[in-house]
Structure formats: structure tokens, C-alpha cells
């Protein structure tokens, strides 16, 4: 069977280092059984891989599975076929964003985080929490208030970001990397 290179399956195999190992999935279910957030996923990784092989791309990219991945690598080290499952989850996030099919605000969390890194060179915990909660969970944000105050009073929260000196150099590197990534 020839694989459509633009399908979810085809892109994992051609774009991801080690992605070709997905072809050897045995459907054993070790991944889903090991996953700390498996019970809260709408499809376990095992089922998602079957759906990918069956070409159900839309449903795959709308799934919450990879957004609930906590990057713990337990599935990866337990997979008898050595499939880089965590990296495949990352790649599925990437594909879902490109296709505009995501149904979660986790994307904004990641993008806000990255925005700080690209602007300052460092992560900015206070900014991340406030921007994310104000935009998505204003009421939840109120609940976070006491927690933030407790951290603030213990000197664990900086109200202003740190900016590295060579932020221009960093941006040049990142922009170049994006350009290279886009040419594929």
C-alpha cells in the first residue's frame, strides 16, 4: 500500500525522526495502559494509532489525546517496538495546529509560553499564568489568586520577566530555524 504523504500517517513517517517505527505498532496497548492521563483521553494512544493507520485524519487531529500527554515518556520506554510515542504526540499537536482542528486551550498555553521565550529568552511564570487565566479561565483565575499571593509572599514569583542580553542573536537563530523548518 502506498501512503499518502500528506496524510497524518505519511507526515509522521516522513517528517519525524524515528517516525517510521509507527509502521511496526502491534496494537498491544502497553502505551494506553501506562499513561498517567490515559483515563481522561478520548482515545488511548493505541486506539489513536489504529485510527491513524485507518486514515481517520480529521477525528485523529480533533482528539484530546496528545494535548493530555504529560511528556513522561513511560509509553516510549515500555513500547516493545520502540516507537517514539511521546515524539509522535508532539508531532500530532503540530499537525493539529496547522490544520486548525484543535479543540483545546492548551495551544494558547504553549504559544504564550513560547512568546515569552522568543521575546525575553527566558520563561516568565507570572506572565504565563496571568495571561492564560485572564484569557481562558477568568473565574478559575480568581481561585488562583491566593496561590499566587502565597508564592509572591515567599519570593517565588517574579512580577517582571528577565531578558537575556543577546535577545537579537536568539531571535535570528529562531527565525532562521523557522525558515529552514518551513522549507521542509
Amino acid at each position: 500500500m502506498t501512503l499518502n504523504p500528506n496524510s497524518v500517517y505519511g507526515r509522521i513517517i516522513s517528517e519525524l525522526h524515528g517516525g517510521e517505527k509507527l509502521r511496526s505498532c502491534l496494537q498491544c496497548g502497553m502505551c494506553g495502559g501506562s499513561c498517567p492521563s490515559g483515563p481522561d483521553m478520548d482515545h488511548t494512544p493505541r486506539k489513536l494509532f489504529a485510527m491513524i493507520a485507518a486514515g481517520q485524519d480529521d477525528e485523529v487531529l480533533r482528539s484530546n489525546t496528545f494535548w493530555y500527554c504529560v511528556s513522561c515518556y513511560l509509553c516510549t520506554v515500555r513500547c516493545p517496538q520502540e516507537i517514539p510515542i511521546t515524539d509522535i504526540m508532539y508531532h500530532l499537536k503540530h499537525q493539529a495546529i496547522q490544520a486548525g482542528l484543535y479543540t483545546t486551550d492548551a495551544v494558547d498555553f504553549s504559544e504564550t509560553f513560547i512568546g515569552h521565550v522568543e521575546n525575553y529568552g527566558r520563561a516568565f511564570e507570572f506572565g504565563l499564568a496571568t495571561q492564560f487565566y485572564l484569557a481562558h479561565h477568568p473565574l478559575g483565575g480568581l481561585k488562583m489568586g491566593p496561590m499566587a499571593l502565597a508564592m509572591l509572599s515567599r519570593g517565588r514569583l517574579n512580577l517582571r520577566p528577565t531578558r537575556i542580553k543577546a535577545v537579537r542573536q536568539l531571535r535570528n537563530i529562531l527565525n532562521k530555524a523557522k525558515e529552514i523548518g518551513a522549507r521542509g
Partner: peptide
């Protein structure tokens, strides 16, 4: 003048810049 490692967030959005970020 080290920079952020990207945590678990950057690799999921765009992988080549994430590699470059850490490689710096």
C-alpha cells in the same frame, strides 16, 4: 546569557526552533 530550554512546550509547537533554542 543562557536562554530557556523550551520546557515541554516548544517541541510540541515547532520542533526545529526548539532544537535550535536548546543548541544555543
Amino acid at each position: 546569557d543562557w536562554n530557556c530550554c523550551g520546557a515541554t512546550e516548544y517541541f510540541s509547537i515547532d520542533s526545529l526552533p526548539a532544537y535550535a533554542l536548546v543548541a544555543r
